[in-house]
């Protein structure tokens, strides 16, 4: 039998946390890991696809539409169907990582394509006229200038992933989502809030931390934008 906080109001979450510290921190670690890795992998997949959609006009509609459609698949359906596709156990965290990578790609293909295309015509023309090859133009001009746009997409993706990982928790994958299942199971007769509130607060804090990280990294990577707003 679990130790239970006496206070069943939302404020009981502090007691609940102290009593289940090891387990909750373990879940938090999994949760962070499962939210972050798909964003990194997803970005690496979305960059070439987005470039393709940007580079070849005919490729834009099918790629962006297909990516958009992927996003409409309910996450729970993806979590339970992936094991049969890639041959993993039903509660293997890999399933979650793969599913969330799919969502990240779905979100970022369009963002990357639009970001690369947002470089002003004058700048693109000047780059070509100065003798940059197509590859140099992409790496030295278009990609650096697309960073703010892509970063905005990454912020959305990473925050969305934190909440989607929690959904996977409800089917038993170890992460903060299990706090919600626990809270639900313990709400016999009257609602028992501490684990639910704790789960929400930790998810929000985790999302904030990731968001701050992305904002900070963008800040470092785009000194030219600071210079403008600061002058």
């Amino acid at each position: 039998m679990r130790l239970l906080a006496v206070d069943s109001s939302p404020f009981g979450m502090f007691d609940y946390f102290r009593q289940h510290q090891d387990e909750v921190l373990n879940w938090l670690g999994y949760h962070a890991w499962l939210s972050a890795v798909p964003v990194v992998v997803g970005l690496l997949v979305a960059l070439p696809l987005g470039w393709l959609a940007h580079r070849y006009r005919w490729a834009y509609p099918p790629l962006v539409t297909a990516a958009g459609l992927l996003y409409t698949i309910p996450s729970i359906a993806l979590f339970v169907s992936i094991p049969s596709i890639i041959g993993t156990q039903i509660l293997d965290p890999i399933n979650v990582a793969v599913a969330l990578t799919v969502y990240t790609v779905a979100l970022l293909v369009r963002v990357v394509a639009d970001g690369l295309g947002a470089v002003s015509a004058d700048v693109a023309q000047a780059a070509t006229a100065m003798g940059l090859t197509r590859r140099q133009r992409l790496l030295k001009v278009e990609l650096p200038l697309a960073v703010p746009v892509i970063a905005a997409g990454v912020r959305v993706a990473v925050v969305a992933n934190v909440s989607l990982v929690a959904v996977a928790g409800t089917i038993g994958v170890p992460n903060l989502g299990q706090l919600f299942t626990t809270g639900f199971q313990l709400s016999v007769g009257s609602p028992y809030y501490p684990p639910i509130t704790l789960g929400i607060v930790l998810c929000v804090l985790l999302a904030l931390a990731f968001d701050l990280f992305v904002v900070g990294a963008t800040w470092l990577a785009t000194p030219w934008r600071r210079a403008v707003s600061g002058s």
């Binding site: 004058d122 700048v123 006229a129 001009v141």
Partner: peptide, 12 residues
Amino acid sequence: YVIQHAGLFPHR
């Protein structure tokens, strides 16, 4: 090559 709005690279 020089163009109307200079076309400078904003990030450099």
